[in-house]
Write a protein that binds this DNA or RNA. Structure first.
Length: 267
DNA sequence: CGAACGACCTGCAGGC
DNA sequence: TGCCTGCAGGTCGTTC
């Protein structure tokens, strides 16, 4: 169930491990993901030049095109030098010399598609700026919030506004910025958005450094968990003391998703 | 146009 | 033990 830092952790692992190897085959056992698995045969015989990322999408760059991979809520990619027989939700293997990359995704919200123009693909071309790149700023958020009554948490989780922020890091960034998640996006002044943009960059960078957040089952390409869960300040901590004021952390529902905050620090 | 909601799918934890 | 409910890190389509 990866957000940007978890996908970036997988990206780094895959790039370090698989760059330069040739795809020798693909075995697809289940095509019914969020969209049907498609075009994978195009990858065969090509060398993996690099592994990119756009928001939560991984891009396995094979020169003539790329495999677009999304892990949805429950997807894992695992590098297996000596692969055991596939289990029930092991939908496909990408075969390389020396091992295979196996996609497991019990809920099947993920994606695995070939595209000759991945950045122009309909899934990717509408995405907002990378939060850790140029083009993302408090000004950008402020501009995109004008005239909008949605909760600020929804604004920052909207991939067309900024790519890659999911439910965990939205709560964390809003806590760090001292902004109530339910506050109407259009009512928040620019200085607050500057602070929020800074908090987003900060929390994502720290999470990447820690190898991502493992709440239940996130693992990198080798099966190692990430260590950012112990540094989450509010997510999953309802009833625990706020690290800033000591008051109890609250859990609310916002658009049917759990949202964590400190009502005192996030006025 | 924006906002709210259900849909997609499986697994797991907790209550009875 | 089993059954039921609610919950889970994402995104998209439909409705008003």
């Amino acid at each position: 169930m990866p957000e940007l830092p978890e996908v970036e952790t997988v990206r780094r692992y895959l790039e370090a491990r698989l760059k330069g190897r040739r795809v020798e085959g693909v075995e697809v056992r289940e095509r019914r993901l969020r969209l049907p698995v498609e075009g994978e045969g195009e990858a065969v015989g090509r060398r993996l030049l690099r592994v990119g990322r756009r928001g939560k999408y991984l891009l396995l760059d094979l020169g003539a095109g790329a495999l677009i991979v999304h892990l949805g809520m429950s997807g894992h990619l695992r590098w297996l030098p000596a692969p055991p027989p596939p289990g029930p939700h092991d939908h496909l293997d990408l075969l390389f010399e020396g091992g295979r990359l196996r996609l497991r995704d019990p809920r099947r919200f993920g994606l695995f598609l070939w595209s000759a123009e991945p950045l122009g693909h309909p899934l990717l071309c509408g995405l907002g700026p990378e939060p850790l790149g140029e083009g993302f700023s408090g000004e950008h958020l402020h501009r995109r919030a004008q005239g909008r009554r949605i909760a600020v948490k929804h604004l920052i989780m909207d991939g067309r506004v900024v790519a890659g922020i999911g439910n965990i890091y939205a709560s964390e960034a809003l806590f760090r910025a001292g902004i109530h998640p339910a506050r109407a996006a259009g009512d928040i002044p620019l200085p607050r958005y500057r602070r929020l943009a800074g908090a987003i960059r900060e929390v994502l960078s720290e999470a990447i450094e820690a190898g991502g957040t493992t709440l239940r089952d996130f693992r990198d390409g080798e099966g190692r968990p990430g260590y950012f869960a112990q540094r989450l300040l509010v997510y999953g901590r309802a009833g625990e003391p706020c690290p800033q004021c000591g008051g109890p952390i609250q859990r609310i529902r916002l658009g049917q998703r759990s949202t964590y905050l400190c009502p005192r620090c996030q006025g």
